[in-house]
Design a protein around this nucleic acid. Structure first.
Lengths: 146, 146
DNA sequence: GTATCTGCAAAACTTTTGCAGTACC
DNA sequence: GGTACTGCAAAAGTTTTGCAGATAC
């Protein structure tokens, strides 16, 4: 289910936030590229590439924060570098990340939820299944170099 | 099983690396404080506090890298901030990290290994169970503020 | 003696912040 | 009109790098 730009904008409006060009631009990019691993840097680059919509770095971060506050967006740390952002509605999947090439793969839901439940019961933590990444070595890198 | 400083030093020597005061100092700290969540900053602080062993920031990082290369040390990212280092021999446990207060808890092994095996089979990744952190909200923070 | 290490300093990289001006409602 | 947002610029925090000099082997 894809969220469109308007949905994001409306959600911001419902939070009492003002709708500005910069926010429209960021929402538009986030909505359009919802299936990718968006980093703040790539969003920034795309916003600044559009002469009609340029927004400053700090504005991009502040907008991403606002979207997170509103519960529409989540970020996760997939590796050593920058955080990646996804729509909260799509954040139901987890990732394994290759620690050599950065390739990611989706973690199959099977088995995960039982384990998370168990983890939650044992530790008392309310585990957030959207904010973690698992590292490993992808099949390609594993064969390329033992 | 605790690794002592000499074991680390010897391993470095076996890699053909030179044994310097700075490396001894870092190895000593890592060995002594093996059970803690050591950050580069805390190691640096401790090294510099010892007048007989001061080492520069860059030297600390380079030594930690060398120990990782040698397979004696691993680092993981538990949150938004700095990486934490542990001895590879002790890196058999995983962590849940509270995304509010930073408290960590150990993940019980029960259930984990089956799930990891399953994950490994499905994705083809050689999953590294030592380098990931799971975020969530710890019991304290969950009650403090809903 | 020489290749490796070290210290220093500065840069790289991501993210945050202060502040004066702009624009949304 | 007033408050919230923006852009700019600079800072903060962690990690990396270039280089000249020191040191382990």
């Amino acid at each position: 289910m894809h969220i469109d730009s308007e949905t994001l904008i409306n959600a911001l409006r419902n939070q009492g936030l003002r709708i500005t060009e910069a926010r429209r631009a960021v929402c538009s990019i986030v909505a359009r590229r919802h299936s990718e691993h968006l980093t703040a840097a790539s969003i920034l680059e795309e916003v600044q590439a559009d002469p009609a919509a340029r927004a400053d770095q700090s504005t991009v971060y502040r907008t991403l924060d606002a979207l997170e506050e509103a519960g529409l967006l989540v970020h996760s740390h997939l590796g050593h570098g920058a955080a990646v952002y996804h729509l909260a509605s799509e954040a139901t999947h987890q990732h394994v990340v290759c620690n050599r090439c950065g390739t990611t793969a989706a973690v199959p839901a099977a088995g995960l939820s039982e384990w998370l439940t168990q983890l939650q019961e044992t530790t008392g933590f309310e585990v957030d299944p959207t904010h973690f990444a698992i590292t490993g070595t992808c099949p390609d890198c594993a064969t390329t170099d033992t």
